[in-house]
Amino acid sequence: MDLTFLIYLSSGLFLGWSLGASEASNFGTAVATKMIKFRTAAIISSVCVILGAVIEGSGATKTLDSLGDITSLAGAFMIALSAAMTTAWMVKLSIPVSTSQAIVGAIIGWNFFAGRNTDLTILSEIISAWFLGPIFGGIFAILLYALLKITFTHWKLHILRKDSLTRIALIFAGAFGMYALGANNIANVMGVFVKSSPLDQLKLPLGIILNHEQVLFLLGGIAISVGICTYSHKVIETIGNTIMKLSPLMAWVVVMAHGIVLFIFSSTELRDLLISWHLPALPLVPVSATQAIIGSVIGLGLAKGGRDLNWNVIGKIVISFVLTPITSALVCYISLFFLQNVFQQVVY
């Protein structure tokens, strides 16, 4: 692995770090209620996110690849950096930003700069997935809530046993959520580098061989893990104590619902299975974990009898759908101009 590649890859790694720091809130309730220590949550999260990225990461990455044929390392660097800068800015504006929307915007910016056409069919697939993410989050939350309600109405479990089960279930849901996050969001972090990566395959003990794409995902997964271990503590506590101040069982519903959303938008096997059953398959697209969580919380609220939708939050999500890709595309276009004309780099 040469130094130039590492320098170019740094923007993707930074994006991975910020993803780990900001979106790894699956263990929020478990940590905030002191059910598990932050360190344990961070270790489980890190392992699961890396596994998800390496095992299931290629599905959503292929879709992003089809949106922009990025073969230049410098171009990939600037796309990831623009997405990271936009994400940071949106976070500052308290808009529930999605790294996916930022990276797609940046790729479109690159397409404009390179004079390439953007595949509108793929783009419409991606945009529909952004809308479907929170909606599915809400639907799955309602279904899971109904399932819990039926289960505990018929199964008179002692409250202490229920507590034990809840703790185990929350840890599993958190781990599943992190696996799905790795599978779905690694495309945002490393997707643009796949075609320009000079990495070779990697042989691991026990005869495990990672192809060059998986090696890249492994690096991205490690970057997300570093983000989780170094910076997610505060976010986890904030999420656990404020935004998601839910009972442990309701937190389980939300974490599972958002995990399922991320999973169905990233699993190649599930898509193949649906196709083999002649059912409509969902596009494999990176979607926002935060927006899926918000959708799940709203769905849960509706299932519990809430009648008022929080239009303010929904409005912010829609603003994010529009504002994030446009900003990211503009930032990328301008940055590419400087990178090409000031630093004399080949960006496409």
Partner: peptide, 12 residues
């Protein structure tokens, strides 16, 4: 001694 969810422990 038993590692309950702290909120439940306080209530019990």
């Amino acid at each position: 001694g038993y590692n309950l969810i702290p909120d439940l422990r306080a209530d019990v």
